[in-house]
């Protein structure tokens, strides 16, 4: 059997879903090996949110007005903080090269990595946010819209953030550069996420904001992995 016969699956593009599955399973197992890190991300979210009442005072009406914005900005920062983890470790130990040279399509593999990043950083925020919302005196209805908004918004944050993380692989400029690149792109997600809770508070339905967040997510799901793949290949060149 010459090596030529045993080449990898003939139609690599057919392997897209296996690629997603491979990356998701591998990154989740990696993340679960260092559970403490997930805890740190979550604690960062809690701390940032809890700092605001110290800054603006405990006055309930004010906290209610600030609540959604604070919870969403803190979610942005928590997501931003954990982005380098997607590529940096793999870049330094050489696995990113092997991933880029795999027959599976690179955007699929990267989607799996981003999904794993969301499950370990975005989802815990969604679960934690109603609890923190109570600190800000948000009503039950507002808390549920906050959680739903984060559920739809945080994957978009991971997807857009992954582009920035891929562009800054191996650069010594550090987190500041990543924040500068990505936070402007986060603005629409923040606007509609926090806007959804405000709409509900004012008695309107938040379906408009949530559907726009959903649309943003779909666009990001299609576009971000492709941009990330290009950025990873550029970084490996």
């Amino acid at each position: 059997m010459t090596p030529f016969d045993a080449v990898a699956p003939s139609a690599p593009s057919a392997g897209a879903w296996e690629g997603v599955a491979w990356a998701l399973a591998r990154d989740l197992r990696l993340a679960l090996r260092s559970k403490a890190e997930i805890g740190v991300q979550l604690l960062f979210y809690v701390i940032v949110v809890s700092l605001f009442p110290l800054g603006v005072g405990p006055e309930p009406a004010l906290l209610r007005a600030l609540g959604p914005g604070v919870l969403w900005v803190a979610a942005l920062l928590a997501s931003l903080l954990s982005l380098p983890r997607i590529f940096t470790a793999d870049f330094s130990d050489g696995t990113l090269e092997q991933i880029a040279l795999s027959p599976y399509p690179l955007p699929a593999l990267i989607s799996g990595k981003i999904a794993a990043h969301w499950l370990t950083t975005g989802l815990p925020l969604v679960v934690m946010s109603p609890l923190l919302g109570i600190q800000f005196g948000l009503s039950g209805n507002e808390l549920s819209i906050l959680a739903v908004g984060l559920l739809v918004g945080t994957p978009t944050l991971s997807l857009l953030g992954a582009i920035g993380a891929a562009l800054t692989i191996g650069l010594r400029a550090g987190g500041g550069l990543l924040a500068l690149l990505i936070l402007p792109l986060y603005a629409p997600v923040l606007i509609f996420g926090a806007g959804a809770v405000d709409a509900v508070r004012a008695g309107f339905s938040a379906s408009a904001q949530l559907s726009l967040l959903g649309a943003g997510l779909l666009v990001a799901i299609v576009g971000a992995p492709i941009a990330c793949a290009a950025a990873v290949r550029i970084a490996l060149d």
Partner: peptide, 18 residues
């Protein structure tokens, strides 16, 4: 090419946690 090449570079491509 990706389906046909096996590249082993200086880096060992091993994850410390695994």
């Amino acid at each position: 090419l990706r389906a046909s090449v096996l590249y082993i570079g200086h880096a060992t491509a091993l994850k410390d946690e695994f």
